[in-house]
Design a protein around this nucleic acid. Structure first.
Lengths: 263, 263
DNA sequence: TGGCGTATATATACGTCGTATACGTACACC
DNA sequence: GGTGTACGTATACGACGTATATATACGCCA
C-alpha cells in the first residue's frame, strides 16, 4: 500500500511497464523480441541510486517508523530485491547512517533557502532549522542519538561534519579561542539534541485518544504517589517549541561564550 | 566462545549433571529415581526473577553492547531457554524498558547513598549522579533516548516517573509556579540527556588506536574542507565532564527559574 | 502423607531479519 | 559486434522475536 509517490517517472525508454508488479516475468518469455526489461533497468523504472535509496528509506521511516525499515521492505518499496541495496549502503548500519546524512542534507537545503546571518543570530537560525527538520521527521530522530553514540567523529556522514564545521566557524569568527569554542560547541550540540529529544518524547502518545488528560495514559499512573507529575503531565505534554529552544540557547551562550563581542 | 563466567555454581542437589548441556534429557530417563533437576530449579540454579533478568541483561549490554542483547543470548546467560524470560518481561521492548528502569534504580541507590541537599544543590547532585550512572553504563545510554521517544510519559518505568516527581518536587518547593516548573523541568531533562549523549559520543573510538590524533579516524577526514573540525577534533574527543554539565545547568536554571529565591 | 492446581521453564515451530555467495543481464566502449 | 564491468537477482544460512503447546516442581489442603 501507499505508492511511493515521489520520483518523476522519467525513464530513458518510453515503455510504460506491463503492470504494477515488478517481479516474476521469468526466463525466455516466449520469443518476444522486446528485451523485456530485466535486471538493471529495474528499480520501479529508472536505475537505483544512493539518493533514491535514502529518500525512499526516509519516507518509509516517516510513514511507518524505524522498525519498519528492513532491507527487504525497502527493496520492495523500490521495486528491487534486498541485496540490490548493498551497492548503495554497505549494510544496514550504513543505511541508518545514510538516514542521518539525509536529515543533515535536508538541513543544509533549508539553511541555503533562508538568508544567512552572522554570529549568534546564525546559531539561532541553525538551531531553529534543525528543530524544524526533526519535527518533520520525528521517527528518524532517535537515529541522531544512537548513531552519534555508535560512530566515531570522523566516520560520521559528511553532511554532519559540514554542520560541525559550520558551527565551529561561527564560533571562531566570533573571536573565541579554541578552548571556548569547543566548550560552546559541545553545549550547543547537547542542548539542540536534548531539547529535540525531550520535545518529541512529549509528543508520543496514543493518537486515537482525544481527551488531553488521558493522551499520555495518565490513568495508569499510581494515584497517590507522583501527584506533581500527575498534575503537571498535561503541561509536559505539549512542549515549549522554538522559544524554549532559543531561550536555553541564549542562556548557554551567555554562559559559555564570555569572550567574543559578537556572541 | 566466551564463557559466561559469573554465576556461583551452587546447586541444591549434589549430582553434578550429565554434561554441560542443559537440554535434552527427555522423557522418563530409564527409571533413575533421582528427579534430575528439571524445569524450575534451573536458571543457573536458583529461580529466575525480574531482578536477576534485568541485572544480567544490563551486564550483557555493558560487556558486549546493545546488539548482543537478544532473548536467546540472555536466556543462555541465565542458563535458561529464551521463552522463560517472557515471564519477567512482556517482550523485547519491555525488556529494554526494564534496562532503563534498572539504570534509574541504580540512580536512586546512588542518590540514597549520598546526603540529600535542597533546591539547586540537589538538582546538581541529581544531575551529577545521573551523569555517573551513564558513564558506568555507556552502552545502555542510547536506550534513554530511544525509549524516551518510544514510550508515552505514563508508561515509562516507575523509577523514571519517580525521578520526574523528585525533580518536580524540588522545583515547586522552590516556589516556582506550574508554568515555570514545567519549563525548567524540560530544560533540565534536555540538558542532562543531551550532555550525556554528546559526552559519550565523544568517547566512541577505535580502542586499539593509541595515537590520540587518530583515535577518531581523523585521517579519514577530507583534508582541505573541515579545517576547523580537524584542528578541534582532539579537543572534542575528551569532553568537559561534570564541570561542563554543572555550568550549563546553572546557566539554564538562572534563565528559566527567575522566581524562587532558592533556585 | 498424598494429591492437585498453579507457577515455572521447556520444546517446537513459524516468519522475518541481515547478509554471504553465486549467478545472470545489459550497457559502455573499443 | 564483441567484451568487460557495473548492476540486479537468486538462493541460502543462521539468528532473531515470539505464539503455542507441553513438561515439571512447588505450595497448599486433606
Amino acid at each position: 500500500m501507499a505508492e511511493h509517490a515521489d520520483g518523476p517517472e522519467h525513464v530513458d525508454g518510453p515503455e510504460h511497464a506491463d503492470g504494477p508488479h515488478p517481479g516474476r516475468g521469468e526466463g525466455q518469455d516466449g520469443g518476444g523480441t522486446g528485451p523485456a526489461r530485466r535486471a538493471s533497468d529495474r528499480g520501479r523504472y529508472g536505475r537505483l541510486s544512493r539518493e533514491r535509496v535514502l529518500a525512499s528509506a526516509l519516507g518509509l521511516v516517516d510513514r511507518e517508523g524505524l522498525s519498519a525499515l528492513s532491507m527487504r521492505r525497502l527493496g520492495a518499496e523500490l521495486g528491487v530485491e534486498a541485496m540490490a541495496l548493498y551497492r548503495y549502503a554497505e549494510g544496514k548500519d550504513a543505511l541508518l547512517d545514510g538516514l542521518v546524512e539525509a536529515l543533515h542534507l535536508e538541513l543544509e537545503e533549508r539553511l541555503a533557502a533562508g538568508e544567512p546571518r552572522t554570529g549568534r543570530a546564525e546559531l539561532h537560525r541553525i538551531a531553529g532549522t534543525f528543530h524544524d527538520v526533526c519535527l518533520a521527521h520525528p521517527r528518524a530522530v532517535p537515529l541522531l542519538a544512537t548513531r552519534m553514540l555508535a560512530v566515531p567523529l570522523a566516520r560520521r556522514p559528511l553532511a554532519v561534519l559540514r554542520l560541525h564545521e559550520r558551527v565551529l566557524a561561527l564560533l571562531t569568527a566570533a573571536g573565541l579561542d579554541e578552548e571556548r569554542t569547543v566548550a560552546v560547541f559541545d553545549a550547543y550540540t547537547a542542548w539542540l539534541l536534548g531539547y529535540v529529544l525531550v520535545e518529541l518524547g512529549a509528543m508520543v502518545d496514543n493518537p486515537e485518544e482525544t481527551d488531553p488528560a488521558l493522551r499520555l495514559g495518565l490513568h495508569r499512573m499510581p494515584p497517590r504517589e507522583l501527584p506533581l507529575l500527575r498534575s503537571a503531565a498535561a503541561a509536559l505534554a505539549d512542549p515549549a517549541g522554538q522559544e524554549g529552544l532559543a531561550a536555553g540557547l541564549d542562556a548557554l551562550l551567555d554562559r559559555f561564550a564570555t569572550q567574543g563581542p559578537r556572541l
